[in-house]
Amino acid sequence: MAYSRASAAVHAPQPAAVERSPGYWSNVWRRLRRDPVAMAAGSLILLLILMAVLAPWITPADPFHASMLRRLRPIGTPGYPLGSDELGRDLLSRLMLGARLSLFMGITPVIAAFVLGSALGVIAGYAGGMANTVIMRTVDVFYAFPSVLLAIALSGTLGAGIFNALVSLTIVFVPQIARVAESVTTQVRRSDYVDAARASGARSWTIVRVHVLSNVLGPIFVYATSLISVSMILASGLSFLGLGVRPPEPEWGLMLNTLRTAIYTQPWVAALPGVMIFVTSISFNLLSDGLRSAMEVKE
């Protein structure tokens, strides 16, 4: 018996190949590729990330080398393509190296908040009832504060420093992401396919893992990408206030602060870190918008 079954398995004719449709995410990618604005924004972001990663090796000058004699040179000065800052350091090199911390401070809290907020929101949305009330009302307490104020208050309480700034920014974004996650999960939870999965005897954890996450992570992810620009601006703001990155480490927000006294003498040089923040955050926003419309198609 065992022998015949085994041989049947070996000699069984191979079933005809099953035609496969492209999955949801490959469809999203196909639509995103046709969106020129999103692709331009995405390329710019990739370029910025590449620049940030390679910065220590590709900066034209030493970003920490100060020169009292060559302070606040205008854009286009030989040896200082984008001018020099208030301590005579090469601004181009500092902007390139500053991309590291600025991007890091913009993206890390959003990733952390994406994980924590999704977990909280999905649990609240799927469990419903009392658990939902407890989680969501607690989250609402944080949500009630304006995010800038909350970030400054938390950072101020925890003390200055990169790590504390990251923690406080994460706390700012968790409630926002949790609210989105909760509302999408509540929708999915009411759908018949979740009922069908419950009727099949699956445990809650299995249903959440297989059926809920596959349908809620997309919308939460899109929302999270739209927060990256906010996070960058808030992080810059914290550094500007001296609560985030400390000098002499280059970071766009901090550079904006230290250069602000030069706004009357070298306005273009003083504005450059702000331009970088603006370009980066708007790129993230445009990419997020493109992603949203690429995912919105009903299927």
Binding site: V18, R20, S21, G23, Y24, S191, D192, Y193, D195, A196, A197, S200, G201, A202, R203, T206, V210, H211, S214, N215, E299
Partner: peptide, 18 residues
């Protein structure tokens, strides 16, 4: 009543795997 992110065969196979 069908998960939009799952292929047909996966939807049908889900309950037995549970």
């Amino acid at each position: 009543s069908l998960n939009p992110r799952m292929t047909i065969e996966d939807s049908v196979a889900f309950a037995p795997t549970v």
